[in-house]
Computed example of a mutant assay.
Amino acid sequence: MLTRAQCRAARAGLEWSREELATRAGLSDRTITDFERGAREPHDNNKRAIRAAFEAAGVRLTDDGCVCLPPDPVPGSALSS
Protein backbone atom coordinates (compact mmCIF):
# COMPACT_ATOMS: atom_id res chain seq x y z
CA MET A 1 0.00 0.00 0.00
CA LEU A 2 2.57 2.60 1.14
CA THR A 3 5.99 2.05 2.64
CA ARG A 4 7.85 4.39 4.93
CA ALA A 5 10.58 4.75 2.27
CA GLN A 6 7.96 5.81 -0.29
CA CYS A 7 6.53 8.28 2.21
CA ARG A 8 9.92 9.85 2.89
CA ALA A 9 10.79 9.96 -0.83
CA ALA A 10 7.49 11.51 -1.90
CA ARG A 11 7.60 14.06 0.89
CA ALA A 12 11.18 15.01 0.05
CA GLY A 13 10.40 15.24 -3.66
CA LEU A 14 7.53 17.61 -2.97
CA GLU A 15 9.67 19.53 -0.45
CA TRP A 16 7.01 19.08 2.21
CA SER A 17 7.74 19.05 5.91
CA ARG A 18 6.25 16.32 8.05
CA GLU A 19 3.88 18.93 9.42
CA GLU A 20 2.67 19.86 5.94
CA LEU A 21 2.03 16.23 5.02
CA ALA A 22 0.19 15.71 8.30
CA THR A 23 -2.03 18.72 7.63
CA ARG A 24 -2.75 17.68 4.05
CA ALA A 25 -3.53 14.11 5.15
CA GLY A 26 -5.59 15.20 8.18
CA LEU A 27 -3.31 13.35 10.59
CA SER A 28 -1.06 14.24 13.50
CA ASP A 29 2.60 15.12 13.05
CA ARG A 30 3.43 12.22 15.39
CA THR A 31 1.73 9.72 13.05
CA ILE A 32 3.95 10.82 10.15
CA THR A 33 7.12 10.94 12.27
CA ASP A 34 6.56 7.52 13.84
CA PHE A 35 5.75 5.96 10.46
CA GLU A 36 8.82 7.36 8.73
CA ARG A 37 11.11 6.36 11.63
CA GLY A 38 9.65 2.84 11.71
CA ALA A 39 8.46 3.29 15.30
CA ARG A 40 4.94 2.11 14.40
CA GLU A 41 2.85 1.12 11.44
CA PRO A 42 -0.18 3.37 10.84
CA HIS A 43 -3.65 1.93 10.39
CA ASP A 44 -4.65 1.31 6.78
CA ASN A 45 -7.03 4.28 6.78
CA ASN A 46 -4.14 6.57 7.81
CA LYS A 47 -1.93 5.16 5.06
CA ARG A 48 -4.74 5.78 2.59
CA ALA A 49 -4.96 9.39 3.80
CA ILE A 50 -1.20 9.88 3.33
CA ARG A 51 -1.34 8.33 -0.12
CA ALA A 52 -4.34 10.47 -1.08
CA ALA A 53 -2.47 13.63 -0.03
CA PHE A 54 0.45 12.65 -2.26
CA GLU A 55 -1.81 11.73 -5.17
CA ALA A 56 -3.67 15.05 -4.88
CA ALA A 57 -0.27 16.72 -5.37
CA GLY A 58 0.36 14.67 -8.51
CA VAL A 59 2.59 11.94 -7.07
CA ARG A 60 2.08 8.46 -8.47
CA LEU A 61 3.05 5.49 -6.29
CA THR A 62 3.46 2.24 -8.19
CA ASP A 63 3.08 -1.35 -6.98
CA ASP A 64 6.79 -1.98 -7.57
CA GLY A 65 7.74 0.76 -5.09
CA CYS A 66 8.46 3.63 -7.46
CA VAL A 67 7.61 7.18 -6.47
CA CYS A 68 6.80 9.18 -9.60
CA LEU A 69 6.90 12.89 -8.92
CA PRO A 70 5.00 15.47 -10.95
CA PRO A 71 6.95 17.89 -13.11
CA ASP A 72 7.87 21.14 -11.38
CA PRO A 73 4.59 22.93 -10.73
CA VAL A 74 3.92 26.31 -12.21
CA PRO A 75 3.87 29.03 -9.51
CA GLY A 76 0.31 29.71 -8.43
CA SER A 77 -1.02 26.36 -9.65
CA ALA A 78 -2.81 23.89 -7.40
CA LEU A 79 0.38 21.80 -7.18
CA SER A 80 2.54 24.66 -5.98
CA SER A 81 0.50 25.36 -2.86
Results as ranks from 00 to 15, higher is better:
36 E>Y: 03
24 R>V: 01
23 T>I: 11
61 L>N: 03
52 A>N: 13
53 A>Y: 04
48 R>T: 13
43 H>D: 14
74 V>Y: 06
17 S>W: 03
76 G>I: 07
31 T>V: 15
81 S>Y: 01
61 L>A: 04
78 A>L: 12
48 R>G: 03
2 L>N: 01
21 L>D: 02
7 C>G: 01
25 A>G: 07
4 R>F: 04
47 K>M: 14
69 L>R: 06
70 P>G: 09
43 H>F: 13
59 V>C: 11
49 A>L: 12
36 E>A: 06
3 T>S: 15
8 R>F: 00
35 F>R: 03
80 S>A: 15
38 G>Y: 07
65 G>Q: 09
16 W>K: 06
65 G>C: 06
32 I>V: 15
19 E>H: 04
71 P>N: 06
53 A>L: 11
46 N>V: 01
52 A>E: 15
42 P>V: 10
33 T>G: 03
64 D>R: 11
72 D>E: 14
9 A>H: 10
41 E>G: 02
15 E>Y: 00
20 E>A: 15
72 D>T: 11
6 Q>E: 12
65 G>H: 05
52 A>W: 02
34 D>V: 01
6 Q>H: 07
56 A>N: 12
5 A>L: 10
17 S>F: 03
65 G>N: 07
63 D>G: 08
68 C>N: 07
39 A>K: 14
37 R>M: 08
51 R>C: 13
58 G>L: 07
35 F>Q: 02
64 D>M: 02
40 R>Q: 10
63 D>E: 14
5 A>C: 00
42 P>Y: 09
42 P>F: 10
78 A>K: 10
32 I>G: 04
11 R>G: 06
29 D>A: 06
76 G>Y: 12
80 S>F: 04
24 R>M: 12
6 Q>A: 08
52 A>C: 04
58 G>S: 09
49 A>T: 02
26 G>F: 07
25 A>L: 06
30 R>N: 10
3 T>G: 12
9 A>G: 00
25 A>P: 01
40 R>N: 13
75 P>W: 11
18 R>V: 01
35 F>P: 02
70 P>I: 05
61 L>R: 08
63 D>L: 13
57 A>R: 14
55 E>L: 05
25 A>I: 07
39 A>V: 13
81 S>Q: 12
10 A>G: 04
20 E>C: 00
14 L>E: 05
55 E>V: 06
23 T>Y: 06
24 R>N: 10
19 E>M: 02
75 P>Y: 08
67 V>N: 05
39 A>C: 01
79 L>I: 00
9 A>S: 13
53 A>Q: 05
7 C>F: 02
78 A>D: 12
68 C>E: 15
67 V>H: 09
33 T>C: 02
22 A>P: 09
9 A>M: 13
37 R>I: 00
50 I>R: 04
15 E>I: 00
20 E>P: 00
1 M>A: 13
